[in-house]
Simulated assay, not measured.
Amino acid sequence: MSKNSKTDRQLDQYDHNMLAILSQYGRISVTDLADKVGLSKSPCQVRLKRLQQDGYIKGFRAELNAELLGLEHVAFAEVKLKNTSESSLEAFNEAARKITEIEQCHMIAGAFDYLLKVRTRDIQAYRRVLGEKISTLPNVQSTSTYVCMQAVKENGVLEV
């Protein structure tokens, strides 16, 4: 399946069920996954491999506890660029990907160009990241910051 065509192959109910379970329990064994979706182990493994190869499953990773790691401070930064030519956008994108404190970077259609989710130890660390890293990214004209007081929902589980 080409990664740009979502219609090359339709997912059936088994695929949808597997994706729903895996989105919440990424470390589930193939045997347990097969039991939950009503398949035997071998067909479940084949489907799992195909879902990975087709790009429906991008990977597996551990969800880390930001509080225990001392990275509780979250801020959202709006970024407006001086210009939005394709080369300016690509230069910004490439440089933003290298800043480890930027947890998410989204190009936005609206009054500003990018929305960044930035995770640091505290407000002082965020201020340093903003001044030394974000504000010096290519073509940045201005930034505005919104400090997160509480994360109400962050699980990122997709309904399939």
Rank of each mutant, 00 (worst) to 15 (best):
Y126L: 05
A95H: 02
E132N: 13
Q141I: 05
G70Y: 08
A91W: 00
Q141H: 14
L116C: 08
K133M: 00
A77I: 15
N155P: 00
A109M: 13
K80V: 15
H73A: 03
V118G: 09
A75T: 07
L89A: 01
E154W: 09
F112T: 11
A125N: 00
G131I: 10
G70R: 15
K82H: 07
L71S: 08
N93G: 02
E154I: 12
R121I: 15
R119D: 03
E101W: 00
S87P: 01
R97Y: 05
S88M: 08
N139R: 02
G110M: 12
A151Y: 00
E101S: 10
A151P: 04
A111H: 06
F112H: 08
L116D: 01
V140I: 04
V152R: 09
T100C: 10
A151Q: 14
T136D: 06
I108V: 11
S135Y: 00
P138A: 05
K98A: 15
L68W: 01
Y114S: 05
D122P: 09
K98N: 12
D122T: 10
A151K: 13
S142K: 06
N155V: 08
V129W: 11
L89V: 12
E101R: 11
L130C: 03
E132P: 01
R128N: 12
A95Q: 12
I108Q: 06
R121P: 07
H106W: 11
H106Q: 07
V152T: 10
G110I: 11
T145A: 14
H73Y: 15
E94L: 13
V129H: 03
V74E: 15
C105N: 14
L68H: 04
R119V: 07
F112P: 07
L89P: 03
N83G: 13
Q104K: 14
E72N: 15
P138M: 05
V79A: 05
T120H: 04
E132R: 07
K80E: 01
T120R: 05
Q150E: 01
L68D: 09
L89T: 08
P138R: 04
R127V: 05
N155K: 02
G131K: 12
D122W: 06
V74D: 10
K133P: 01
Q141G: 08
S85P: 08
A77M: 06
Y146N: 03
E78L: 11
V140G: 07
I134Y: 00
F92I: 01
Q150L: 12
F112A: 09
T136E: 13
T100G: 14
K80S: 14
G110D: 09
S87D: 14
A96W: 01
V118T: 00
T145W: 08
I123M: 06
S144Y: 04
V152Y: 02
L116Q: 02
L130T: 00
V79C: 00
H106N: 13
R119G: 02
R119N: 03
H106R: 13
Y146K: 13
L69H: 13
S87M: 10
V152W: 02
Y114R: 11
A151C: 09
Q104D: 12
